[in-house]
């Protein structure tokens, strides 16, 4: 996505150009799922593979709200990418004192890579972010609660979690009796070596979980 230089002031664009080389704004992701019955097996295997094998995996309980910022100046636009910018707001339900997180994820990059590559930016914000986005003109698209475990292996973040509807009930009761498994790693624009590491970890989880590059927009 090209930066519209006429919009930013000159100082800002210089700053961002400087930041872009060292700010990790690219993310490699591999996603899959595992049935609920096999989650404990997966967790013990992951405990063996990841750092800190001697302590129990850390749990998290977050609520995520997705906002869409539509492009009002061009309401008749059709086609991919014109649905608007999607911004995700995440708050920790088990640690309400922590700042909320605002996350922007871009379109997956085209190309044959061992893992899905996409632009991503994580910004900690104050808790009035929802109000702010509402004033900005964003609308809530969907929201859900995710609860699960998070582990780390070097730079790779491994999460195993279950999706719930806000209010406590599981999404698609009866259809989904699975946990989502996600491997992700943040990197800078020029470093793609981490993707092979991701693939190696993913292969070590076979045949329990089959992790792939899945673009959810195509589903």
């Amino acid at each position: 996505m090209s930066i519209n230089l006429s919009v930013q002031s000159v100082l800002d664009s210089i700053e961002s150009a400087q930041k872009n080389d060292i700010v990790p704004d690219q993310e490699f992701v591999l996603q899959g799922s595992v049935m609920d019955l096999s989650v404990s097996v997966l967790l013990s295997r992951l405990r063996g593979l990841c750092d800190n094998a001697d302590s129990l995996p850390e749990t998290f309980h977050d609520q995520e709200i997705c906002f869409i910022l539509k492009d009002f100046s061009n309401p008749g636009a059709v086609g991919p990418g014109t649905g608007g910018v999607m911004l995700r707001v995440r708050k920790a339900l088990d640690h309400p004192e922590l700042p909320w997180q605002l996350r922007y994820t871009g379109q997956p990059e085209v190309g044959n890579r061992p893992a899905l590559l996409r632009n991503c930016l994580d910004v900690p914000v104050s808790s009035n972010i929802c109000d702010f986005l509402h004033e900005l003109g964003a609308k809530v698209d969907h929201e859900y609660v995710s609860k699960g475990y998070i582990m780390r292996k070097g730079r790779i973040k491994v999460t195993v979690f279950k999706i719930f509807k806000v209010g406590g009930k599981e999404v698609q009761e009866g259809v989904t009796k699975s946990h989502v498994v996600e491997l992700s790693a943040l990197t800078t624009r020029v470093d793609e070596a981490i993707a092979t590491d991701l693939r190696i970890v993913a292969d070590q989880l076979k045949p329990l979980v089959n992790l792939q590059n899945l673009d959810y927009r195509r589903l």
């Binding site: 919009v7 930013q8 961002s16 930016l121 104050s126 702010f132 004033e135 900005l136």
Partner: peptide, 24 residues
């Protein structure tokens, strides 16, 4: 009405993504 958001410095990097919402 005024809404004040306090964010990390990285918020500046997010601004180009929202460029379609405003003009300078």
């Amino acid at each position: 009405k005024q809404v004040t958001l306090c964010a990390d410095l990285m918020f500046d990097l997010l601004l180009p993504r929202l460029s379609h919402m405003y003009t300078a």
